[in-house]
Nucleic acid binder design. Structure first.
Length: 622
RNA sequence: GGCCCAGUAGCUCAACGGAUAGAGCGGCUCCCUUCUAAGGAGUAGGUUGUAGGUUCAAUUCCUACCUGGGUCACCA
């Protein structure tokens, strides 16, 4: 709405000056001193005026005499002023090198700030009613869950929430490799370890889930190692074939270990506030995948050296094997059946595969192959190419066992957090709840603040820092707002205004906010809060939860500065400060106090909603 | 070697083609008799890998090169 009104206004101005009206762009000003919105139109047009072949009769003599963009900006601004500014604009300013800055009225900003915390924030037409499948996490069974999985789990969940806030219908999918050589290796290795240690399956069944899961992880590493031996490799291959054939001899061990993995993963999903609408498994698509590939030999696929391949080189990609010469479908082959199955389950407009960028080449190939098999998938499969998580130089690999286990990591963070809130007057259950919530908040935030495509170097001590730009900082700020509100004991402050925009709104104003000095911390907050819905919309369009992170962080910083400098509540009975140069104000009048409480309320709401979009629970106390 | 991604402060990261390239951590100073100090204020730290090009304007777009990572047939 803002954008349209401003464009309408300025294009009339430009027309009256005989200037072109294409390419009008308004954008949020990067800094508050540059106003709320700004336009570069004067600089864009300027080049037309300067070069004779582009001039084409734009403007009159008075315009073409202008020598620098700044003067053109001044000319446009003064003309606009004369013709009348939109209702919500307080003032405009032409400024070197040629920007036109627009400042909004405070009461308008307050109305917008309130809108930002209403239910339908962040909706955009690009997402309205769109069916979005978000496929993420995909930890394979029988292997260790590592920090890379955790990143896609966290980012996928955040994206799902952001898409949903933007108006999309979201389906959370998880695709897990529960069949194939890695499973054979893991079961092989686990059996060996069990034998060597003189244990029994029944005995292990009594272990805790993490213990069982880690045993499988160890087994996998062992299986990989044994596979290097030619003789043992043959046996493992045999086991693999048996698994594919569902040989009753091996199925009990398979079912049992598979269950261990899945149950173990479930505990993580709930700890991370994720609930999948459907788990897809390789075991349910490998047969139909094989069939689809075989049926399309000669059309999409071809025989080569005993295997069935897709020749991506025809499309500037590379060749890949879809069915091995042993007759087993590879990951690629299975995917040919997965896509139709997913589409049948939820007819998506877009399926976003949140998967590491090391698979970028792979996805290009299978997306191409899918398109050729069925044109319905054209432009509907998207690989969000996630950056890798690396630990201090080394690439993590569950094959070699060089990994950070997720549960170890979480335990360690929790431990680091303990001393921080132990001092408060909290009950034991409260402490436990807060400790867990903060642990998740800090790990999630540290993963989300970086752009999804960016590689990230993981150093436990540094990356999960607990102050500054971190989850706990946001949580702390939120808890602070709630603490103030509890003490304010005012629950129903409603802002109102007589401002009319498009005849939609008409309310009465109660607070003297038009007089707020634009350079104060209050004004800074007012000018930040209302941007929230737009940030959410952008985060959805760009698939970038990090935009929400930086916005929230900025908001929190502004609130904390405000908090430090100004009194919010009227506290009659308090002893007055005896310090002569006490920084914050001593007293606050009733109207100002109400306004500041209102701001606090809005900031709190935005943080809460923003954290929720990131999949982080907000804490009333900490 | 082909293709993909990245290179920004000592470290970890920001910045729809715009204004003085911003934060946090770490370093150095200040601020708790206070509405939550997990906080705030200040200070030091940069030729945005290199060289060209496009543009009124380039960290951002284009080209080449350098460096790092990924990937390139029977693993997932």
């Amino acid at each position: 709405m803002i954008d349209e009104e401003l464009k309408k206004g300025i294009s009339e101005v430009l027309k009256s000056l005989g200037l072109p009206t294409e390419k009008i762009i308004f954008e949020h000003s990067a800094e508050l001193t540059h106003g709320d919105y700004s336009s570069n139109i004067a600089m864009t047009i300027f080049s037309h005026i300067q070069s004779p072949h582009l001039r084409q009769g734009f403007g009159g003599q008075a315009i073409s005499d202008i020598k620098i963009p700044y003067n053109l900006a001044k000319r446009i601004a003064s003309e606009w002023q004369k013709m009348g500014l939109p209702d919500f604009v307080a003032k405009i300013e032409a400024v070197a090198p040629g920007f036109i800055n627009i400042f909004f009225k405070n009461d308008y900003l307050l109305v917008e700030a309130k809108k930002a915390v209403e239910k339908d924030f962040g909706k955009i037409k690009e997402m309205a009613g769109k069916k979005m499948m978000v496929e993420f996490a995909h930890p394979n069974t029988h292997k260790e869950l590592h920090i890379g999985h955790m990143r896609t789990l966290i980012v996928g969940e955040a994206l799902a929430r952001i898409f949903s806030a933007a108006g999309a219908e979201v389906f959370r999918a998880n695709y897990q490799g529960d069949i194939g050589p890695h499973v054979a290796k893991s079961i092989w290795g686990t059996e060996k370890i069990i034998k060597e240690r003189g244990l029994g399956w029944e005995e292990i069944e009594k272990w805790s889930l993490p213990e069982k899961a880690h045993l499988l992880g160890e087994g996998y590493v062992r299986g990989v190692k044994d596979y290097e031996d030619l003789e043992l490799a043959k046996e493992i291959d045999k086991l693999n074939r048996q698994l594919y054939k569902k040989d009753p001899q091996v199925m009990p061990a398979y079912e049992q270990t598979r269950r261990w993995s899945l149950d173990y993963y479930d505990t993580f999903y709930s700890r991370f506030y994720t609930k999948f609408d459907r788990l897809f498994f390789e075991s349910e698509v490998f047969e139909s995948g094989k069939k689809i590939v075989e049926e399309n030999v000669g059309k999409v696929f071809e025989q080569s050296e005993g295997a069935i391949i897709f020749d991506g080189e025809k499309y500037g990609l590379h060749k890949r094997v879809f069915i091995t010469k042993d007759g087993n479908p590879t990951y690629e082959g299975k995917d040919m059946a997965l896509a139709p199955l997913q589409y049948k389950t939820f007819p998506f407009d877009l399926n976003v595969h949140v998967v590491a960028n090391e698979q970028a080449g792979y996805f290009q190939v299978i997306i191409k192959a899918l398109e050729l098999l069925d044109p319905i998938f054209k432009d509907k499969e998207f690989h969000l190419s996630m950056g890798m998580v690396q630990m201090v130089g080394k690439k993590m690999s569950s094959r070699t066992g060089v990994i950070i286990k997720v549960d170890d990591l979480l335990a360690e963070i929790k431990e680091m957090l303990q001393p921080l809130f132990a001092k408060g007057e909290l009950t034991e259950p409260e402490k436990e709840k807060i400790g867990e919530a903060l642990t998740i908040a800090s790990i999630k935030y540290s993963m989300l603040r970086v752009g999804p495509k960016q590689d990230v170097i993981f150093d436990l001590q540094k990356t999960v820092s607990l102050d500054g730009d971190s989850g706990p900082y946001l949580e702390y700020t939120y808890a602070r707002t709630q603490s103030v509100l509890r003490k304010a004991k005012i629950s129903n402050i409603n802002p109102s205004t007589t401002l009319r925009i498009n005849g939609e709104r008409s309310r009465t104003i109660k607070y003297p906010i038009s007089n707020i000095n634009p350079n104060t911390e209050e004004s800074a907050l007012l000018r930040t809060i209302y941007k929230f819905p737009e940030i959410v919309a952008n985060a959805a369009k760009e698939m970038a939860p990090n935009l929400v992170c930086s916005f929230l962080y900025d908001l929190c910083q502004k609130y904390n500065t405000f908090y430090d400098k100004h009194k919010i509540l009227i506290q009659k009975s308090k002893v007055k400060s005896q310090k002569p140069n006490f920084k914050t104000e001593d007293e606050v009048d009733e109207r100002t106090s109400e306004f500041r409480i209102l701001l606090t309320q809005a900031v709190g709401e935005v943080i809460k909603k923003g954290l929720n979009l990131l999949g982080i629970e907000s804490l009333e106390k900490m």
